[in-house]
Design a protein around this nucleic acid. Structure first.
Lengths: 226, 226
DNA sequence: GGATGTGAACGACTTCACAGCG
DNA sequence: CGCTGTGAAGTCGTTCACATCC
């Protein structure tokens, strides 16, 4: 009796919805393109774009097809066009005011990470529960108490939140962020977050990555990736 | 010129080689199992294991099948058995002496990250090129100059290296690590490393993760993941 | 010739569904 | 019964190969 969801209800004839893997590669293409463009390269081929990243030319073309028909047969792609198109698809052709909760070493590292700001990710506020840290200033940003979240988020209109708190605090803080209006969370804690499906979560689980590495080094097989 | 990397047509009849995706989930199962076990849960079902992680029970069983037939039909799995088996497959049933190059905030965050040591990843040495930092001690570890790499690695037998250096230094440092005997690199820089195929690389690209998030928040579709 | 865009083949991963054991 | 293990079916993503256009 558990069978009533017959029709696949939504969009089937969607011409282009980049998959997760594709989105990841688009990020890499974008960075490579920006570098090439700075170096004065104006036209790029799928082969050129892919080879430094270990991606086949066919894969590159399939990925770029999601952007529309930007390529010129026999010529290649115009770097500036690609850059603009990828930015558009990734949604980074705008500013993303972002808040950071949990002011530890990881937070400091992220704050200093050039490349976030370059992409429009602008940290607009910091939060911590430690009275010692509250009131301090880091990179020009004041550390607020957690209670100030609703007010500060209302003021800054931040839509993204970065979680660098201890495991135990993660779920609670995430819920507070969502309640205050955040629509996407970058989660550096090992806690699996339970949030409403309208909120997007990307988890960066460092233990998992290190264990991947241990597995790969132990096993005698292939190699590189993300 | 650029065409000699033929296909490695090696082992096909391998009965059980966990895929990359499976390995990632095994890490998650392991963490969950350890928690459940600490809470006194001795028997777990595939459904119980998967539900908190958003993984279907069928998927859990398929993943665990790589460990051999550990399950008891009608009963479930014995948590300690699973824990031991997963540790074995992941290769973390041993110690992994690890070195860290680039002593910035990210490095400090990783050093403090409990959960690495719990899994056998033991930092045994630090390196940096900054004369100010060389000679300092962090968490009981001395910061060595890059030149000391061969000697220190020979002494500590470290097999894994973590790269938290600036982009420009990444390729050079990675090569030095490999020359000194490291067989696996966890790369936090946006630089795509070119290393011999016998060296395993896992990249953690924070910009890509944030851009994934921006894409997901921009797009009106599904949700959570790793 | 050089390079794109794309259907078709291929392969990898996931879900289904069910036999079979405790 | 509950729950595992697993072939079969299905889905998703990548590679191939080629028509097409500059």
């Amino acid at each position: 009796m558990s069978k009533n969801d017959e029709a696949p209800p939504a969009d089937l004839l969607n011409p282009a919805k980049p998959s997760r893997a594709t989105v990841g590669r688009l990020s890499l293409y974008l960075r490579r393109l920006e570098l090439l463009h700075r170096e004065g390269v104006a036209k790029v081929s799928s082969r050129l774009l892919g080879e430094a990243l270990g991606v086949s030319d066919a894969q590159v073309r399939k990925d770029l097809a999601h952007l529309g028909a930007l390529g010129h047969p026999g010529i290649g792609y115009a770097a500036p066009d690609l850059i603009a198109a990828i930015r558009g698809v990734l949604g980074i052709d705008r500013d993303w005011p972002t808040v950071l909760v949990g002011v530890g070493h990881l937070a400091r590292a992220l704050l200093r990470y050039r490349g976030f700001a370059e992409r429009g990710f602008r940290f607009v506020a910091l939060f911590d529960s430690d009275p010692e840290k509250i009131g301090q200033t880091l990179d020009g940003l004041l550390v607020h108490p957690l209670e100030a979240m609703p007010a500060v988020l209302a003021e800054t209109h931040a839509e993204l939140g970065v979680l660098t708190v201890p495991l135990e605090a993660a779920q609670g803080v995430a819920e507070a962020l969502v309640a205050a209006g955040v629509r996407g969370v970058l989660n550096f804690t090992p806690q699996v977050l339970r949030l409403p499906p309208s909120v997007r979560v990307v988890a960066v689980d460092l233990t998992v990555q290190l264990e991947q590495l241990a597995f790969l080094v132990g096993e005698p097989t292939a190699s590189v990736d993300e």
